[in-house]
């Protein structure tokens, strides 16, 4: 994983400021921004995927084995789109 900016020596910088590790910004956890947290009820969920499709932060993914959707709270910013857009009201926003 790329070192934080203040630990990088100038000799280590790639020409042109190229970043060689794809997607390494995932080490930054945007979940810390959250003041509200989605709470999911798998029994009410009709497995329509809408929350997954509409999440701007790719924080929701399917867990086929357990037949539920799961939230990655390292990244969920608590915007509430998933809850608002869920056609089955299977998600509610709660204070975090």
């Amino acid at each position: 994983m790329t070192k934080p900016m203040d630990q990088i020596l100038w000799q280590e910088i790639e020409p042109g400021g190229v970043i060689t590790e794809p997607g390494n910004a995932s080490c930054y956890h945007t979940g810390a921004w959250r003041s509200q947290k989605p709470k999911y009820d798998p029994d009410t969920c009709i497995k329509c995927w809408r929350c997954y499709i509409m999440c701007p932060d790719c924080a929701i993914s399917p867990d086929y084995e357990n037949n539920v959707f799961v939230w990655n709270f390292n990244y969920c910013k608590g915007c509430g789109i998933c809850a608002y857009e869920c056609p089955a009201n299977a998600i509610v926003m709660e204070e975090d």
Partner: peptide, 22 residues
Amino acid sequence: IKPLKNFPMEEYINSGHRACQG
């Protein structure tokens, strides 16, 4: 849960980006 048709699962802009909420 049925696999989603015509909507690939791969992400090309990863979580951890700093766009505003929503």
